[in-house]
């Protein structure tokens, strides 16, 4: 990934910033340019909640280039408190302890791939909520 491309997506990766259609109220993550529901181009920034529950998950054993070092890792669908669903890696938990319906919260984690010059990349991952 180019450094600038990484930089452009920093808000969605660091702070879960999506957007919302000003006309029909639909929320998008990642952010969109045009609302597919009503066709409006009037979209405003929308901060997603950082908590939710794990709807479904899978354990990945074969990873794409650069991600091999992380296997096995968990990819899941997280339904956030406002009902928006995001695809994310689940972290800070042993693979066998991951449970459907588990409460999770967003956290910042390092990505395995590095940018030119060794710049380290980060993104959101979800971890179990510790009560």
């Amino acid at each position: 990934m180019a450094t600038s491309a990484y930089w452009r997506t920093r808000f969605q990766r660091y702070r879960l910033i999506g957007n919302r259609c000003k006309e029909c109220g639909k929320v998008f993550f990642p952010p969109r340019f045009v609302c597919p529901a009503c066709g409006s181009v009037k979209l405003e920034e929308y901060k997603l909640p950082e908590r939710g529950k794990l709807v479904e998950y899978t354990v990945v054993y074969t990873a794409p280039k650069g991600y091999e070092v992380m296997t096995p890792y968990v990819i899941g669908i997280v339904e956030l408190e406002d009902g928006v669903r995001v695809l994310a890696q689940i972290t800070d938990v042993d693979v066998e302890d991951v449970k459907e319906g588990m409460e999770v919260e967003a956290s910042i984690r390092r990505l395995p791939e590095q940018l030119e010059g060794g710049m380290i990349c980060y993104t959101y991952k979800f971890r179990p909520v510790i009560k």
């Binding site: 990934m1 491309a5 452009r8 997506t9 969605q12 990766r13 990642p30 990945v60 074969t62 990873a63 794409p64 991600y67 992380m70 890792y73 990819i75 695809l87 994310a88 890696q89 990505l111 395995p112 990349c121 993104t123």
Partner: peptide, 11 residues
């Protein structure tokens, strides 16, 4: 869509 999919680590 690479701007989203790539950094999730999903396949």
């Amino acid at each position: 869509d690479q701007e989203y999919f790539r950094y999730t680590g999903a396949t």
